[in-house]
Design a protein around this nucleic acid. Structure first.
Length: 577
DNA sequence: GCCGTTTTCGGCCCGACTGTTTTCAGTCG
């Protein structure tokens, strides 16, 4: 029986794929896809909402019909529409849709003509040269299909972590900016929305003549393949495996193009819909009054574009069609937290445990980063792999911190610990030791696989300890490596709010944990956030911006984040009432 | 199948590029 949101989303995506292959009404297909997207991006657990008999139609894209189907699916484990559809078309056809260049029409044709209904069949047919004999298929397509299958078999096609994408994007943009005629250039797409992972990079350049920049792009030394090439758009594959799109546009269209290519797609559709309601056609070249398509009425800046549909400019991090348009309409957009608003970092390690640098070096680097305070939170003893500190070593570290604080100017070191939450919910250090600390970051490093209720109870029991201040990397996920552990995030967030415990947004590129949607949930339920680096060396202190990104995607304002406070306010907050 | 400061019916975003074609369908973002 499917319990997880992503399993429910997967069923609806499969249903959408199969119906599309059958040639069903495309709007009905889209409705299923939209529902899958909504469900996949939901913080609350759908199965819980169903058992609590909550109204599912309050979620976008879910109407009476779909709400009933979801209830049936959760209760019986079956989606009758999917079962019926699978009696008519092989369910594996849905898997073929992941092949790039192969859409519903192509899958249908190959099934009808060659009886291809699995990845294995497809590979065999391609190798035997039977694909290019089918109408509208040629030798190139056949070859591309084989290459795609190869890629899937070798496990490729993962999305790239934001920080990894950044490493590729920054130098590439600098390189392209030197092309003749480039007036402005920036990365759009999910990168600009600061999503935790990006599929490919969308770079937008404004210029008069696109020739030079396109030429410079496709001849970059890291390019292994030019996937497509045109005067306004080209796509290349880099040696890192990432795909990059470059779009060239005239300056008068720059804002419209930036808006268009920043997305998300769902946000764009909503904005364009508003355009239509006001008699405008919105595309990447500008906003056009209907019936006349010569000159755009707006388009040089994003502000103009939003202005024409009667909205204020919306920050890219919010453009996910998660209510930002309604909020903008009411003038109720959040004033998102910024990197500059942060006064310090509340999670850092030293070479006393698994960090690389000394207390003194960490302090100096934090001062250079402009921090007012830095909490030293080395591991507790349970994390033996990292030489976790016992009570005695922690006490000695505290004395060293006292000495350094006497000596340092402009930065205060806070005494802390990243205390392990043990399996039974106790903390890994005695209460009298914890009582002597300024801050505790309480985290799980062992037993990730407890059942959902047990894991949730474990953390909440730990929060009952009055020395519990901050829940470190709450979901435990590692992007592209480890799924978050099973948690009732709603119950957890509510428990944190009641007990005045803060939730960490960990800036480590592989963590970014809390996730954006959980930040949103925390904000809704009144739980405070902390944006921290979990630095293991001095350079890591510079990662803080990644935590800011995720918090912004979760609509967080400075007031939702405790490390926007000055030291005295912060100390008061950490006392937990 | 969803959705509604024009609507409970009749709409539903829009353009570029490719491959396979001689004018365009399919796919993608």
């Amino acid at each position: 029986m499917p319990v997880h949101n992503h399993e429910i989303a997967e069923r609806f995506t499969r249903l959408a794929n199969l119906l599309e292959i059958e040639g069903e009404n495309p709007y009905r297909v889209r409705a299923y896809r939209n529902a899958a997207r909504t469900i996949g991006g939901l913080s609350a657990n759908i199965a819980d909402l169903v058992s609590e008999e909550q109204d599912l139609t309050r979620y976008p894209g879910i109407g009476k019909d779909l709400a009933a189907k979801i209830r049936t699916l959760v209760r019986s484990g079956e989606l009758p529409d999917l079962t019926e559809t699978e009696e008519r078309v092989p369910t594996e056809l849905s898997d073929l849709m992941v092949i790039e260049g192969l859409g519903p029409k192509g899958v249908r044709a190959l099934y009808k003509k060659l009886n291809v209904d699995s990845l294995e069949d497809l590979e065999e047919a391609a190798r035997a040269g039977r694909i290019h004999e089918v109408e509208r298929f040629g030798e190139k397509t056949e070859k591309a299909i084989l290459e795609e299958i190869e890629k899937i078999r070798s496990g490729g096609k993962k999305r790239t972590r934001l920080a990894d994408a950044e490493e590729v994007a920054r130098p590439l943009v600098a390189y392209l900016a030197e092309a003749e005629g480039v007036e402005a250039i920036e990365v759009a797409g999910s990168f600009r929305r600061r999503k935790e992972t990006v599929g490919d990079l969308d770079i937008l350049a404004s210029c008069g003549d696109s020739g030079p920049v396109m030429e410079r792009f496709v001849t970059h030394e890291d390019v292994t393949e030019v996937v497509s090439r045109g005067s306004t758009r080209s796509t290349v594959r880099l040696s890192s495996g990432m795909d990059v799109d470059l779009r060239a546009i005239h300056g008068r269209s720059y804002g419209a193009a930036l808006h268009y290519f920043t997305g998300s797609q769902a946000h764009n559709i909503a904005v364009r819909q508003r355009g239509l309601e006001r008699g405008y056609k919105v595309n990447e070249y500008g906003i056009f009054a209907h019936d006349r398509d010569e000159e755009p009425v707006a388009g040089a800046t994003e502000e103009e574009v939003y202005g024409r549909v009667d909205l204020p400019w919306i920050p890219p991090e919010l453009r996910e069609d998660r209510g930002e348009i309604q909020a903008a309409e009411k003038g109720a957009l959040p004033r998102l937290v910024t990197r500059k608003a942060l006064r310090g970092d509340l999670h850092a390690h030293t070479n006393a445990t698994d960090g690389a640098d000394s207390l003194r070096d960490m302090a100096r680097a934090a001062a250079e980063a402009g921090h007012e305070y830095l909490a030293i939170t080395d591991h507790s003893k349970r994390v033996s792999m990292a030489h976790g500190l016992d009570a005695d070593r922690l006490r000695r570290q505290g004395e060293e911190i006292d000495r350094l604080n006497e000596e340092l100017n402009g930065i205060t070191l806070l005494k802390g610990s990243e205390v392990d939450i043990l399996e039974d919910g106790r903390l890994d250090l005695p209460d009298d030791v914890l009582a002597g600390l300024d801050v505790t970051v309480c985290s799980i490093h062992y037993r990730f696989n407890l059942p959902r209720d047990k894991q949730t109870d474990r953390i909440i029991r730990a929060m009952d300890n009055p020395h519990f201040r901050i829940l470190g990397h709450p979901s435990g996920r590692a992007i592209n490596e480890r799924e978050p552990f099973e948690l009732d995030m709603e119950r957890l967030v509510e428990a944190a709010a009641e007990r005045h415990c803060a939730l960490e947004v960990n800036a480590q590129p592989a963590r970014l944990d809390l996730r954006d949607m959980d930040c949103m949930l925390a904000r809704e339920r009144g739980a405070k956030l902390v944006l921290s680096t979990d630095a293991h060396n001095t350079y890591n202190l510079g990662l803080l911006g990644y935590a800011v990104d995720q918090a912004r995607r979760g609509w967080a304002e400075a007031g939702d984040v405790i490390n926007t406070r000055g030291l005295e306010d912060l100390r008061a907050l950490l006392r937990r009432g």
